[in-house]
Nucleic acid binder design. Structure first.
Lengths: 141, 141
DNA sequence: ACACTTGTAATAGCAACCATTACAAATCAA
DNA sequence: TTGATTTGTAATGGTTGCTATTACAAGTGT
């Protein structure tokens, strides 16, 4: 499974807000930068708003950062998008009458949890400010 | 996205092969320990076979480890199942006329690649032998 | 020969994701 | 105040990926 592209879309949105902080970017405008439907943009912004990362006002153009990009990690965005709590999926009904079946869930859980934690720890190491800095640096060669 | 449960099923299968090394476990038998359809078991075994982790013979019951479980990491299993090359998904068509749109793919790629590598590095730290050891330890309290 | 097993294809059901349309509610400018 | 614009949200449809299930050819072993 695959982590949906709305994670990438969310990072894109925050990058736009950080790159054009003075302007009121409409969802239509952002949609054309991202290359997706404007309703998708509004939905993702809704997730960012519920996570406390941006503020909006119905009817008024624009979304605004609730705190500076230095204080928003990529993990914050990942959690805001709230894909799935568990990256890995356990099989549902192993047989309790089998020694392997009745113990594998715990063994798998240990490994899966650590792997997911490492992935998330890596996401936490990058802030949205670094992303924007990288974008700007790449744009001025 | 979510990593499909056939990853967990694959670990379960190898654990069975390691726990009952002398027996020829049929796909039906394994299916009942795992709690899924026997065809799924045969399909997953096929992936493990193509990855060089087990050997089978059509018509003959059983699957057999191609090398000892100490030499099979959980990452090997993950790769054998070959879910998706990329855990994260980039959005397909950012706008090249926007400074953010034309540079975000690279910035995202950097972060996503590192996160996936950390996750995989963690999976590589555990061998199937450890999994089986943990299962046996949990079963004898 | 006959029962059993593997390997594989085909089909169906289901869930998640994205695109799109539609529209109420709020804002803002004339 | 009126009318255009924008956000927020619901509803629908198409697509994709995963699992369950049936079916059956090909190989094995007694």
């Amino acid at each position: 499974m695959r982590i949906a592209s709305r994670f990438a879309i969310a990072v894109h949105i925050l990058s736009l807000l950080g790159t054009f902080p003075e302007e009121s970017l409409t969802s239509d405008w952002m949609a054309s930068s991202i290359g997706v439907n404007a309703v998708i943009v509004r939905n993702v912004i809704g997730m960012l708003r519920r996570a406390g990362l941006v503020t909006t006002q119905q009817g008024a153009a624009g979304a605004f950062l609730a705190r500076p990009l230095q204080q928003i990690t990529v993990l914050d965005v990942y959690r805001a998008i709230g894909m799935e709590d568990d990256l890995f999926t356990l099989h549902q009904s192993p047989n309790p009458n089998c020694p392997v079946g009745r113990n594998i869930q715990r063994a798998l859980g240990t490994v899966f949890t650590k792997a997911q934690q490492e992935m998330e720890a890596q996401l936490a190491k990058t802030t949205m400010a670094q992303i924007v800095r990288e974008i700007k640096a790449a744009d001025k060669p």
